[in-house]
Design a protein around this nucleic acid. Structure first.
Lengths: 216, 216
DNA sequence: GTTGCATGCAGTGCATGCAGAGCTCTACGC
DNA sequence: GCGTAGAGCTCTGCATGCACTGCATGCAAC
């Protein structure tokens, strides 16, 4: 099925910044770039538009570019959903439904994220960080929440590609990851939800442009 | 643009139960029924699949049929998101950003929902109820949350078409709507979030099949 | 009687042709 | 020199043709 592989490849190209936010994507150009005809490209466009990665702009489609306000709205929804997945994961831990190996892998992800960030391997750090949060959503065993979060992550990733900031907050991020991990491990749903929500909102507050960053 | 109108019309047909959960949807059949060619139908299929209304089933697509477990997962996400929108709406009220007329319309929606339910006009009651909750999400002024909730509502609506139950809980539902409304009107975000979460989860608990309802 | 294979059919997936809409560039007029 | 109008072109939107896959049905052999 070329439609599906076209969708995945195009999504990768967008998430990698090959098609940056605001860039126009044309059927013919993408079709030639990926070596398929326009039909599967058109269908991939529809699917990616429904996922919030592409948006109509008069004639044709553009890669979505979220402004500061919209990004804050995405983060607020993400905070609510990650609070839920953390809560659910902690519930499952309390019910004895999480294997120790799963929690160990989660802790290892937190470690690797921290090391990559500290070493300045920012691209890898971003990937690992997303992996850490996604793993929690997987442990929540709620595919609906997982899918919704995947969509939000895609949108965030596209809109924050430029600002792979050198993090002065490395230790804070890691400490918050530990808090979250501890709450889940302890099987404390309320604490896990609170830790997740605080972490996401703090992340947003730290990444927010300081009023004179960029305009357009 | 026929693609978009095809998508909307097909969505209506699915939500109305014209294509019931589990029904196969064929390109040719839908194209003939709507009087367009297969191309816009195919693109509408992709978009509706991304929205969670259609899902692949070997050859072709079927209308999504959520089992009891999946429906509970949807409700849990919905509870988290409606808690968020209620919280945001209450925040805006506290900040003086909600017009009195907007709150009055919301109260009127609650009234009409209650009356329609009490009078046994169930189809209308479902529509009004959805309108009430959606209006709160609109007042939250967060399009991301609004869109996510629209998707969840669509999935719920499709999967609960059969069970337009005569509600013994009419008064409970109305009382919870009032609580939610009061918390928003009072500008109390925490209370609004709690009221919304409880209402959604209670609704799910009440609608859940009592173990011997249906199997398949 | 059951199982395995072959054949036919239906429906999807992809490509391409064609028409229409919007944007741009140029030329002419003020 | 600037603004506006017109023409041309590029790109999207839709339709249709063709090939291929996956399934069902029937027949034959064990």
């Amino acid at each position: 099925m070329q439609t599906e592989s076209t969708r995945l490849r195009l999504r990768e190209l967008i998430l990698d910044g090959h098609y940056p936010p605001g860039a126009r994507v044309g059927e013919v150009e993408v079709a030639e770039a990926l070596g398929v005809s326009r039909t599967p490209v058109r269908e991939a466009f529809r699917a990616l538009a429904a996922d919030g990665l592409l948006a109509g702009a008069g004639r044709g489609l553009r890669v979505v570019r979220l402004d500061d306000e919209e990004l804050s709205q995405v983060y607020r929804v993400r905070a609510a959903l990650e609070a839920l997945t953390a809560e659910l994961a902690a519930e499952r831990q309390r019910a004895g439904r999480l294997a120790p190996a799963e929690l160990a892998e989660l802790a290892a992800l937190a470690d690797r994220t921290h090391r990559a960030t500290a070493d300045g391997r920012l691209t890898e750090a971003v990937r690992l960080n997303r992996g850490f949060h996604r793993r929690i959503a997987e442990l929540a065993a709620n595919p609906v929440a997982l899918h919704a979060l995947d969509r939000l992550w895609d949108q965030i990733q596209v809109s924050t590609l430029r600002s792979l900031h050198a993090p002065a907050r490395t230790d804070v991020v890691d400490a918050q990851h530990r808090d979250l991990l501890d709450a889940i491990t302890a099987g404390d749903p309320a604490a896990a939800a609170a830790a997740a929500r605080r972490h996401v909102l703090d992340t947003r507050a730290a990444d927010r442009p300081t009023a004179d960053d960029d305009k357009e």
